[in-house]
Amino acid sequence: MLIDMPDDLAVRIEDLSITYKINVDTKKTLKNAVMRASKGEKVRMRTVEAVKHMNLDIPHGSVLGIVGANGAGKSTLMRSIAGILPPSEGRITVNGKISTLLALGVGFNPALSGRDNIILGGLASGLSKEEIANKTDEIAKFADLPDGFIDMPVRTYSSGMYGRVAFAVAVAMTPDILLLDEALSAGDAAFKEKSFLRMRELVKEARTIVIVSHALQTVKDLCTHAIWMHKGEILAKGEPGAITEKYLDFLNVGTLPSNDEDF
C-alpha cells in the first residue's frame, strides 16, 4: 500500500470536515416517512458542520491537549480519529493501534460485573481471550476498586469507580495511540496522580496520547502540544501554557484556582 505518511507521525488529518445531518421534524419512523411522502412533503434536514476543513499532524510520542467550549467539535474529532465517525470530506491517516476512552464511557453493560465488562471491552477492541485473561487482574488492580466491587454489577458503581475501570481498560490495551475524552473528570486526586504516571510511562514508550479536557491544569501538566478548537476550527495551536492562557482570556474568567480544580 502506498500511503504518503511520514514515519514519525501517529495521526495526520488533512482538510477534514465532519457534518451531522439532523432530521429536525419528527421521530424517524417509517410511518412518518410514508405520511410525509403521501403529502408530497420533503424531510427537513439540518446540517451541523462539527469539524471544518481541519489540518493537523500529531507526531509519535506527543501528548496533544484539545481545549474548547462545549459543542466546539472536540468529541467529534476524537471519534473520527478512532474510525467511528466517517469523514464527510478530507482524510485521516492513522499509524498504530488505537485505544479509546470517549465521552460517554466504554460500552459498559450495567447489569454485568466490572470484570465481565473488562473482558467484553477488550474483545471489542480486538484483543484475544487469552490476552485479556492475562490482563484482567492487572486492570482490576490498577482500577483499585474497594474490595469485591470488581465482581459487582457496574450499575452499583459510583461515577468515579466507573471512570477508574474505563481508564484502566483503555491504558491496558497498550495502544500506540490513546484517545481520552474527558476521561479523568470523575477520578479522585489519588487516581488522577496514578493515571498521570501511567500516561507518562506510555509517552516514554513513544506512544501518543490525545486528551480532551475542560481541566486546563491537566492540559498544562501533561501535554506537549495543545490546540484550541472553536466552532469546528482550530483557533490556535502551540505550547500548552500559551494556548490555555489564550483560551482562558477568551473565556474571560482569568485564572481562578477553582477553574483549574474541576476537570
Binding site: 500511503i3 474510525g83 469523514p87 470530506e89 482524510r91 485521516i92 491517516t93
Partner: peptide, 8 residues
C-alpha cells in the same frame, strides 16, 4: 505500525 486511512 498499522496504517489505517479514513476517507469519505
Amino acid at each position: 505500525p498499522r496504517i489505517q486511512v479514513f476517507e469519505p
